[in-house]
Each structure stands twice: as structure tokens, then as C-alpha cells.
């Protein structure tokens, strides 16, 4: 009899490999999850399998705003129809759009880039949904672009790149970005130079 992982049935080995492909899941956790799936009753496991299948078969990304949609074949998703396209908030990921949407602050539409420029990971502007954004701007309905990329090095680089190409090609579109500075609940003592510099530059008068 062989010992170790190779002695496991092929189906279990496949499941372990599949789980370890998920972010944050290492081989040990993948094994633990696989044994949990084995111990679960059939109905529960099939529910999970069905949910995974449905997500991949029925959902896709909107060709206009690149947000998740169930109308993956149509040009505009329901979300694009509902929202005004005069003001577009550009975000890195779907989760960022959902966070802003849940706050109820932004009334316009979104554009999801699906990442940020990261040369260290070989990600350039061509790998983001920038072309789709340009197509939207070509329609001439947009008056303002709000750059809501993360205040990280990659997010800032993405914002600068978009600022450059939009200001060069679309002179009538107003470009804004989310304010930078001190976050609520932070201690001034522990703030970094970048945050402090931004906070000073973007200081406001007290009315």
C-alpha cells in the first residue's frame, strides 16, 4: 500500500487541488475543506456545487460598465440603464463599487477596471478595462469622472494614467478623485508622511 497523499482516491486529490487554487487557501486548509465536504451530506454538497456552477454559467461582466451582470450577452446591464451616465465613478474592483453603492453617496454609474496598474506583477493598462471606459466616454454623455482607485501605489499609478489619457483626449470632461488625508479614528502621531502631506494639501477652511 502506498502512503501519503498519493494513496488518497483521485477524486479527493482533485478536490484538494481545486480548493488550493482559491486565494488564501493553502494545501493544509484545502485538505481540511475536502474532508469536510466528504463528511457533509450529499444535499448540502450538491447545493454548493450548483451555486458554483450557476455563478459561472449565468453571470458575466457587463460590456459597458464591467460590473457583474446576468445579461452577459447584452450591451448594457440593468444597472447601466438605471444609473445616470453623466457621472462615472471609476473603481478597481467590483467589491469597491458595492461598498460605495451601499453608502448611498454616489448617484451616478460605475466603471470597474478589474485591477490596477502593477508593473511588479506584469499588469499594465492594456490588461485593465480602460478601452471599455474610453468607448463609454466617446458617447459624449459623461460630464464628470470620479477616480476612486485605492490610495495605494498601484491605485495612484492607475489614477495618474487615467488622468493623463482622459485629460488629453476629453477636454470637456471634469476629472476628480476621492480626497486623500487622515481617516476617521486614526492617530495623528502614527500617520505616515504621505497621508500627512495629503491632509495638509487638501486642508479645508472651517466655516
Amino acid at each position: 500500500m502506498t502512503s501519503g497523499k498519493n494513496s488518497l482516491p483521485v477524486e479527493v486529490q482533485k478536490l484538494i487541488i481545486a480548493f488550493s487554487s482559491l486565494p488564501g487557501i493553502g494545501p493544509k486548509t484545502a485538505q481540511r475543506l475536502s474532508y469536510f465536504v466528504l463528511s457533509q451530506n450529499k444535499e448540502e454538497t450538491l447545493k454548493l456545487a450548483e451555486a458554483l456552477k450557476e455563478v459561472k454559467e449565468n453571470l458575466g461582466y457587463c460590456k459597458t460598465c464591467c460590473f457583474i451582470t446576468s445579461d452577459k450577452d447584452s450591451e448594457n446591464c440593468g444597472y447601466c440603464y438605471e444609473k445616470e451616465s453623466e457621472q462615472i465613478c471609476v473603481v478597481e474592483n467590483v467589491i469597491d463599487a458595492i461598498t460605495i453603492e451601499m453608502s448611498g453617496i454616489h448617484k451616478g454609474s460605475f466603471h470597474v477596471l478589474h485591477g490596477a496598474i502593477s508593473p511588479m506583477n506584469g499588469i499594465g493598462p492594456e490588461k485593465l478595462k480602460v478601452e471599455e471606459l474610453m468607448k463609454r466616454l466617446n458617447r459624449g454623455e459623461t460630464k464628470e469622472i470620479i477616480l476612486a482607485t485605492n490610495p495605494t501605489l498601484e491605485g495612484e499609478a492607475t489614477g495618474m494614467y487615467l488622468n493623463k489619457i482622459i485629460s488629453e483626449n476629453y477636454k470637456n470632461i471634469k476629472l476628480t478623485r476621492l480626497a486623500r488625508g487622515l481617516a476617521s479614528g486614526t492617530d495623528l502621531e502614527y500617520s505616515d508622511f504621505n497621508t500627512l502631506s495629503n491632509a495638509f494639501q487638501n486642508r479645508t477652511s472651517i466655516d
Binding site: L153, E154, T186
Partner: peptide, 14 residues
């Protein structure tokens, strides 16, 4: 976390 003392310092190119 926004309230973390480490957050702003841990950035590439710092």
C-alpha cells in the same frame, strides 16, 4: 484597517 498604526507605512516604495 483604517485605524491601524501600520497602514500608511506599509506601502511599496517606502
Amino acid at each position: 484597517k483604517p485605524s491601524s498604526k501600520l497602514s500608511g507605512h506599509i506601502e511599496p516604495l517606502n
